[in-house]
Computed example of a mutant assay.
Amino acid sequence: MYVYIESERARDSEGFSSVNYTVGFYDPSGKWRPESDCGSPEEAAGRVAWLNGKPD
């Protein structure tokens, strides 16, 4: 089953914060296997739904 995690949070010199969300899955041994990166939780959730077979 694919899930997404907040994988990176960065702040630039002007104080702007950006967040990266990585879509992937945990293999049977518990190792994280990334599939793609997204710029918003909504985008990541849509990708997860599609990868998990949710119909449109």
Rank of each mutant, 00 (worst) to 15 (best):
S18Y: 11
A10V: 12
A10F: 11
S40I: 10
G53Q: 04
F25Y: 07
S13W: 14
E6Y: 10
L51T: 06
P41W: 12
G39P: 00
S17H: 13
G39H: 01
F16L: 13
G39Q: 01
A44F: 03
Y4R: 03
A49Y: 06
P55W: 05
P55V: 08
S13A: 14
D12I: 02
S18P: 05
W32T: 03
S36R: 03
K31I: 12
S13D: 14
V19Q: 09
A44C: 07
Y21Q: 00
D12H: 04
N52E: 11
A10H: 13
I5L: 10
G15L: 07
A45H: 12
G53E: 04
G30H: 01
A49T: 08
Y2T: 04
A45C: 14
W32L: 04
L51R: 05
D12P: 01
D12R: 01
C38P: 00
C38G: 03
K31S: 14
R9W: 05
A45Y: 11
I5V: 14
P41Y: 10
K54R: 12
A49D: 12
A10L: 14
E8P: 02
M1W: 08
S7N: 04
G30V: 03
N52L: 05
S18W: 10
K54T: 13
E35N: 07
R9D: 03
A44G: 06
S40L: 09
P28D: 13
G15V: 06
R33C: 13
W32D: 05
E35D: 12
V3L: 14
P28V: 08
A10C: 11
V3F: 13
